[in-house]
Amino acid sequence: MKLNTHNYKEILSALSLPEFWEDQLSTNDINTNSIALRMLHGIKDNITGGVISLRTQTENKDIRKFAKSIYLEVDSTDAFKYLEDDFDRDFNALDELRIHSALKKKNQEKPLPPLMQWVNMAQKIEFKIFLIKEIGFFQQIDCAPQLLDLYLQNVDYSIKAQIADTLGLLDYDIAVPVFIESFNYNPQEVKDKIIDALGKLGGEQALSFLESIYYQTYNKETLIKILLNIRLIDHDGSVYSKIENSVSTDFEKIAISYIEKNTSEIFEL
């Protein structure tokens, strides 16, 4: 059922509800501020970033971060300004959820600006990783070359892992030789993401590389991961069959059967 938004706005205006909650936001009581922010967030259409910015510098981190995330959603002039500053000194995964949700709404109105600009500005590793993840989610393919450049720089391994993941999502196959070349110089966290990325990017080079590392891998979890990704990109099934015929351990046989069962739906489509 579609809401009658006109009447809704009229009632809000007649009862001066936005003004009331704006007043509540300016009080010094944390509880009242929190309720006021939620109310203003609910009213949304009738409020501006200026009203919310009252609380974006407040001492209480929960109120401050919540206000910043609402600001990102409602402001029409400089909505992304807190992305320039690592969002907040207390940035955490709940903020990721709030920002992600706000970005999704913004993206529905009009395509987001390239998030790479804020990746370059970000100081905090966690915030950088989050933005790189969002680049993949919003399919900002234009950011891919810069991400690959960043991958080649001496950055934290968690950032490298996220770049590999994102470039896989972006289907940026130029990254395949870079990933293959750097594979052995990375820790397991990055290797796992590269394996998954190669499974998305596909191609002869990726397939042959995955096959070669399969025979060198002792970690059982990684073995399953490699097998799964080979299965996903080995369209004629030749490499997968070759491995299937060569395995000797019960574990590998069970793993192959498990992956076949789990991927059968994908291949049937």
Partner: peptide, 18 residues
Amino acid sequence: IKYTTREEDKLKNNPEIA
């Protein structure tokens, strides 16, 4: 103060990040 149904809804509506 910190957690309300809004936060819970955000989690449910954004499965890609939950």
